[in-house]
C-alpha cells in the first residue's frame, strides 16, 4: 500500500524531475552547437559542470530583500513543476497522481506559477528583477486562458477532466490531428510560462537576466532547474493531451511517453533560440488578438466534433 501509493510514485516523479531537465540541457547544448562553435566538457558533461559552478558560487544578498520569499520562490517553482510531472500518466495504471480532476490541477499549477514568478522578481528588492516580475504578471493571464481553452478542448471528447481518460479517448485518433490548433497553441504557452526564446520577457537580456538578475549560486541553480523542470512537465502534459500518451504499437507505454516527451522537448529546445525576443507590447497583442481567438476556434471545433 505504502509502496504503491507513496514510494513508487515519488520515485517516478523524482526520476522525471532529475532526468528531464538534464536531457533538456543536453538538447539545448546540441541546438547551441548547431548554431555555432562551442567549447567545454562536451554535451553530456556541460550541464553538470554548469551546475557544479553554481554550487561553488556563493548565494548573494541584495539590500533589504524579502529574504524568506526570495529563497522560497525557486523551490516553489520547482514544487509546481514536480506537481505537474506527477499528473503525467506513463501507462493505464502507472500514474503518480491519478485524480478525476487532473486537468483542473494542471490549470491551477499554471496560475500559481504566475504568483511564484512574481515573488522571485519582487522579493529581491532590486529594480530590474521587479520589472521582470511586472512583465510576467501583465502577460501571465493571457497564457493561462489560452492553455485552459485548449485543454477544455481535449476534455470534451474524453467527457472527463482526468488525463487518463483524455488518453483513452485518443485510441482512434490522437488529438494533435483531431484538434490541429491545440498542440501548437499549447507549446507556445509552454515557452511563455517558462519564458524561453522569443517569449523570454521575464528573464530577458534587456533586463540583464530579469527576475534572476540578482540571483546567484545555489539559488540560481534551483531557479534554472525549476524553469527546465516546468518545461518538462509541459511536454508531459502535451504528450498526454495531444499525442496519445502511452498509446503506440510494439513498445511498452512508458517508453512511448518518454519518446514523445523527448520529441516535444527537442522541438521546444530548437524553437527557443530560433527567433528574436518579441516586444512585450507585441506579445500582449499576439496573445489577446491572435492566439486567444484561435483558442476559441479550437474549443468550438472540439465542441462541434464532440456533438457529431
Amino acid at each position: 500500500m505504502i509502496l504503491d501509493q507513496l514510494v513508487w510514485p515519488l520515485t517516478w516523479v523524482l526520476a522525471a524531475l532529475v532526468l528531464g531537465p538534464y536531457l533538456l540541457a543536453v538538447l539545448d547544448g546540441l541546438v547551441a552547437r548547431s548554431l555555432g562553435p562551442t567549447r567545454g566538457p562536451g554535451i553530456w558533461l556541460a550541464p553538470l559542470s554548469r551546475g557544479a559552478w553554481w554550487l561553488i558560487q556563493h548565494t548573494n544578498v541584495t539590500e533589504a530583500p524579502d529574504g524568506r520569499a526570495w529563497r522560497l520562490a525557486p523551490a516553489l517553482y520547482l514544487a509546481l513543476a514536480a506537481g505537474g510531472l506527477a499528473l503525467v500518466p506513463w501507462s493505464r495504471t502507472w500514474v503518480a497522481t491519478d485524480i478525476a480532476t487532473s486537468l483542473v490541477l494542471w490549470g491551477s499549477i499554471e496560475a500559481l506559477a504566475t504568483v511564484v514568478i512574481f515573488l522571485q522578481g519582487w522579493s529581491a528588492n532590486t529594480h530590474l528583477t521587479l520589472v521582470g516580475a511586472y512583465r510576467y504578471v501583465a502577460l501571465g493571464l493571457s497564457y493561462i486562458l489560452i492553455s485552459m481553452f485548449v485543454l477544455i478542448g481535449v476534455a470534451l471528447p474524453a467527457e472527463s477532466l482526468a488525463l487518463t481518460q483524455v488518453i483513452t479517448s485518443q485510441q482512434e485518433l490522437w488529438n494533435v490531428l483531431r484538434q490541429p490548433l491545440g498542440l501548437p497553441l499549447f507549446l507556445i504557452v509552454g515557452l511563455a510560462i517558462t519564458f524561453r526564446g522569443p517569449f523570454n520577457l521575464a528573464d530577458s537580456t534587456d533586463l540583464a537576466g530579469g527576475t534572476s538578475a540578482d540571483v546567484s549560486g545555489a539559488q540560481r541553480l534551483v531557479w534554472e532547474f525549476a524553469r527546465s523542470a516546468m518545461l518538462v512537465a509541459f511536454s508531459g502534459i502535451a504528450t498526454t493531451a495531444f499525442l496519445g500518451g502511452w498509446l503506440g504499437p510494439w513498445l511498452p507505454g512508458p517508453l512511448w511517453v518518454a519518446f514523445k516527451m523527448l520529441a516535444v522537448l527537442a522541438l521546444l529546445a530548437w524553437l527557443g533560440p530560433a527567433f528574436a525576443r518579441i516586444t512585450p507590447e507585441r506579445c500582449v497583442s499576439l496573445m489577446w488578438v491572435v492566439l486567444l481567438p484561435l483558442a476559441f476556434v479550437d474549443l468550438i471545433w472540439a465542441g462541434v466534433e464532440a456533438l457529431l
Partner: peptide, 16 residues
C-alpha cells in the same frame, strides 16, 4: 568532494 566539484566547475565556460 569540494575539489572534485571545483574540477568539474572549471570545465564550464568562464562567466565574465
Amino acid at each position: 568532494a569540494v575539489s572534485w566539484l571545483a574540477r568539474l566547475a572549471a570545465r564550464a565556460p568562464v562567466p565574465v
